Simulated assay, not measured.
Amino acid sequence: MGLTGVLRVVVMACTLAGTWFLLQMYLNTSWKSISLRSWFGSSVLADPSASHAQPQTPRNKCGNVKSCPQNHFAFKIISGAANVVGPSLCFDDNLIMSSVKNNIGRGLNFALMNGTTGQLIKTDNYDMYSGDVKHLVAFLKTIQNGTLVLVASFDDPATKMNDEARTLLTNLGSTYAATLHYWDNWVFLGEKDREDKSPFEKLLQLNKETDRELKLPVALKMEGCIPQKMK
């Protein structure tokens, strides 16, 4: 091989080596500059357990806004909305009465709870439009001292109400039982033979001027904490 041939081989080898070197640098630089996050998008690789994720708010009993201190029972009472949506009663995170449980009715809905243990004693409802008020009176007379009484109205709570029934409800600590009217919305938590008025009571009265023909489907909601009775 002459000198010219040797020079051609050397030039070709240098060219191949340089090309390989440049190609290697290009490929290395390209892959280093394109991250998987930028290629697929940050949402695909987002880790839901990353430290920047917002912690979930703990759920309170009965879904209440505030938690209850020790030795207190959480409760939530929601009245019916006109004759459209039924009421619900929750006590110590247990749904006691609701449309889903199929144990509510038109009129007044009651749940009796043991004030010491928080256990359910009885549920019942009384039709105050076409029912007989004597059944309500008999029920109220059977309630034992210290029993917590949860009440939620549905549709009409008062058409058949008489003075005896109103007095018995007042003795549970109610302020509004004495003036309860047709289609009022009422929620209440009282106690048998309570010496003072209960702080747990709400009333929404029908406006006879503006709601003469139509009772709007508005529900009353009341939630809170009641102290556990000690033995």
Rank of each mutant, 00 (worst) to 15 (best):
T57D: 05
A178M: 14
F200W: 14
N171G: 04
L120R: 03
Y129K: 12
A158V: 07
P55C: 02
L27F: 10
W186I: 01
I226R: 03
T210N: 09
G5K: 11
G2L: 09
D47C: 08
C225I: 04
G41L: 04
Y26W: 10
W183P: 00
N103R: 02
L169R: 03
A152Y: 05
W20H: 12
G107F: 02
L204A: 12
K66A: 00
L214M: 12
F91G: 02
L220H: 10
T147L: 09
C225A: 06
Q119P: 00
T167G: 06
L169K: 04
T175M: 12
D184G: 01
T117D: 07
N125K: 08
C14N: 12
A50I: 14
T179G: 11
R106G: 13
V149Q: 05
L22N: 06
S42N: 11
F75N: 03
N185V: 10
H181S: 13
Q56D: 08
R59P: 03
W183N: 11
S38Q: 12
A165N: 07
N125L: 09
L220F: 11
K66P: 00
G131R: 00
T147H: 07
W183D: 13
I143P: 04
D163G: 05
I34K: 08
P48N: 10
R37V: 14
F188A: 01
Y26L: 13
Q228A: 03
L172M: 05
G131P: 03
A17E: 14
F91Y: 08
L189M: 13
G190R: 05
N207M: 07
V137Y: 03
T167I: 11
S98G: 02
K32T: 10
